[in-house]
Design a protein around this nucleic acid. Structure first.
Length: 436
RNA sequence: GGCCCUAUCGUCUAACGGUUAGGACAUCGGGUUUUCAAUCCGGUAAUCAGGGUUCGAUUCCCUGUGGGGUCACCA
């Protein structure tokens, strides 16, 4: 039982802020491990001392935490220098690798010792869970370099040794690694390691159809956190890039994702990332939240003096992520709830209705509204009251439009009933009066 | 350019030889109490091309073309 246990890993190098494409790889590896009751290993590949930075490592961890991709084991590759050296020496001793004295590539002209792999120049075939059987000739690889010296292993060696020592059963990684696989299998054979099952995921492309990259505007995953996306929505949305459950259901919880995920339904060709669809996923997940959570989140985004719970439903149906609340505030779309708007007289007119008629309707509205008691001044009653007048008019807009505009001063706004109920009877009457 | 992978609406995709080629996002139109939003209903929109195999190809094979990846003392 335990010997069949699935072990997957996510092995990023801390040389940048990973984007959604990078994290989707982690998500698939995580989902697959959880689905099979296996374990998920998180390994920081920091053998490149120059480019590895602590801040990047922290960012990766933050992203993993945020998405809830809990790992069973964490370590840094640099901490395994001992085992890397062990296998390096073993390979040299057995003739599978050798130390080569060559001129340093940095242009200094100095001579330097490197460790090169003794390439047997053969065809390597491996079965990929997604791509099927892949065969590559290793001849043109030459005797590739596997370490700068005995204490500084390079990628191919370090990956093979660590995957082997950690008992990784499934290497789930980006398609950009397929061409590395033949080298790594060669090393595996040389050190006597088993070859894991490979699953090379098609890449996530940007709108420019090129591999997603920060340079071309891809957001770091932690930016989605800052923008107020829901982690479960991003998890859901990212999983649907290049994978589908084969049914028409699209909104999945983490548990449902784990239960449904499989490698067989992973797409073979690259997918272009669609931000709009991700926002849709987010909105759908937001709708699943309790009203308490919605209240809390919306209110949090509002400046303290604007934190009126009555505003929440109005705001909520207009946003697809929490930070949209701040945009609404910044654009002044909520200002009329707090201060009397400046009215553009001409815009009070509804279609071709005369200004006299508008004036008269406004007066009618005031009169009707005045009759509602302070206590009954709620959306429902205001609506019934106003509608009973509007229904007797040639068109309802003759009344509803000027009232709404008088209250908001905006071309686009929520309906007049709800605005009136929120700003209260006095303020409503005063704004209508002012408009007249 | 060599090598590897790949090809269904604008985008993400369903179909595992027989469907009016389905869904979602986006878009367009309409309803829903005036505008916006939300919601409901409806529309436009795809099998890269050419050869095979087959009674029948989106589906299998070949070629072409397109797209992606990769060719470091990075990972």
């Amino acid at each position: 039982m335990s010997e069949n246990k699935v072990v997957t890993r996510f092995a990023p190098s801390p040389t940048g802020f990973p984007h959604l494409g990078n994290f989707r790889t982690a998500i698939f590896a995580y989902l697959f491990a959880k689905k099979h009751n296996g374990s998920f290993v998180f390994r920081i590949e920091d053998t490149d001392k120059e480019r590895s930075k602590k801040e990047f490592e922290e960012n990766i961890i933050e992203g993993l935490d945020w998405l809830g991709l809990s790992y069973d084991k964490f370590y840094r590759q640099s901490e395994n220098a001992g085992r890397h050296k062990f296998y390096l020496e073993k390979m040299i001793k057995e003739g599978n690798a050798y130390i080569s004295k060559e001129e340093a590539k940095d242009g200094s002209g100095a001579m330097k010792e490197l460790v090169r792999f003794k390439n047997p120049n053969i065809n390597v075939t491996f079965k990929d869970e997604i791509k099927g059987e892949v065969t590559m000739n290793t001849e043109d690889l030459g005797d590739f370099i596997i370490a700068k010296n005995l204490n500084e292993p390079l990628f191919h060696l370090a990956v093979v040794v660590d995957d082997f020592e950690e008992g990784i059963t499934h290497v789930i990684r980006g398609e950009d690694h397929v061409s590395n696989t033949s080298r790594q299998i060669l090393i595996q054979r040389a050190i006597g390691a088993t070859t894991p099952i490979y699953a090379h995921l098609p890449l996530v492309l940007g709108p420019d159809k090129l591999k997603l990259s920060k340079r071309r505007g891809a957001l770091a995953v932690t930016e989605y956190k800052k923008l107020g996306f829901l982690p479960e929505a991003v998890l859901n949305g990212a999983t649907f890039i290049g994978w589908n459950p084969g049914t028409e259901k699209e909104i999945f919880s983490r548990e449902e994702l784990i239960a449904s995920f499989d490698l067989e339904r992973v797409q073979k060709s690259p997918a272009i990332f669609n931000q709009e669809k991700l926002e849709w996923f987010n909105k759908e997940h937001m709708k699943l939240l309790s009203s308490g959570e919605i209240n809390k989140n919306v209110l949090e985004q509002l400046p303290e003096n604007m934190r009126n719970p009555k505003l929440v439903p109005i705001i909520f149906e207009r946003i697809s992520k929490w930070s949209d609340v701040k945009s609404m505030v910044a654009k002044g779309e909520l200002d009329f709830f707090f201060k009397s708007p400046v009215i553009d007289k001409a815009k009070l007119i509804y279609k071709k209705t005369s200004s006299e008629k508008i004036n008269q309707n406004l007066k009618l509205a005031i009169k009707a509204l005045e009759s509602i008691s302070e206590n009954d001044f709620n959306t429902e009653i205001i609506k019934i009251t106003l509608m009973s007048i509007a229904d007797n008019l040639e068109s309802r807009g003759e009344l509803l439009h000027p009232v709404r505009f008088a209250l908001s001063g905006l071309d686009k706004s929520p309906d007049p009933f709800i605005i009136a109920s929120i700003i209260g009877k006095n303020e409503t009457l005063s704004r209508l009066q002012k408009a007249i």
